[in-house]
Amino acid sequence: MSPRKQTAGAKTPVGPVRTVEPGHIFQMYRKMLEIRECEDQLNTAFSKNLFPGYIHSYLGQEACAVGVCSALRDDDYIVTTHRGRGHYLAKGMALTPMICEMFGKANGICGGRGGEMHAADPALGILGGNGIVGGGIPYATGAAYSAVLNGSDQVAVAFFGEGASNQGSFHEAMNLAAAWNLPLLFVCENNLYAEMTPFSASSRQVDVARRAEGYGIPGEVVDGNDVLAVYAAAEAAVARARSGAGPTLLELKTYRYGGHFQGDPCHYRTREEEAEWRARDPLIRLHAHILSQNLSSESELDSWREDQKAQVAAAIEVALSSPDPDPNEALSFVYAS
């Protein structure tokens, strides 16, 4: 079956003409570089069998996490998925403990309990990843409701894939958030495939954003490979939520370069389609934008890449030389005392 071609969003190099401070653009670019380097080097390490488990790569989707999280404050909440590294980093999680967790090490952010699909940091509002597709969306409502009860203007974001949008949990949460007018953003990263299944085979309506209509809330399709477009959409949705106008569903059309997991042969999609999406690479587009606007120089951007490369390499080195957890630790923290 040849996968149905889906809307990719604007072909323009980078999104809507609006003024974003160059400093903010640089931060986004550096964050995207950090995620890109992290995913690249983890793939390499994984293919050398340097750590166990799976790796659900975020390569190609960097603009989604970075665009949305750039519109958030530290005290806003995010809930993510099995493919969450981009979100963790974009929300400010430190690289080294996150990578050590992937390696299952004692100094990983979960002490080696979580592995690839789990990480959290309450101080940064990062409320965890998930091994259950759609498992995080319901509890994002609770974080948003805490903000309501506290009378604060914090918002919560639930990140999930288009596959998860077929779970009941998504629909229940959308409906409750809409009925209760919760400060909650539903951010669907539609990378076109859930494992090996194209979305067109599991949903008649291939624009997840259209589902918002059924719940009476705004829904918007955004070019998920255009970080400035994602940022603009997220900023508007966050502003609505903070002002008490309730939830929004954003659908970010994007693509994962790797397979569902590292080693997936990707027989379910064409090499042409992959090449098309590579041509819309979110980093290349922002890079081009920065240069075309004379915001920075090629050599400076290169130096940032080298810098991120070195930081990721150093974090992997730390992970490789870190101790495994003490197995006795498995018995602790079952209950809070």
Partner: peptide, 20 residues
């Protein structure tokens, strides 16, 4: 709440994680 058991419990999970 709506008749949505999964999100009813989810509401509790997220609220508990954030101090309620």
């Amino acid at each position: 709440t709506p008749i949505s058991e999964e999100v009813i419990v989810g509401l509790g999970v997220g609220a508990a994680m954030t101090g309620k």
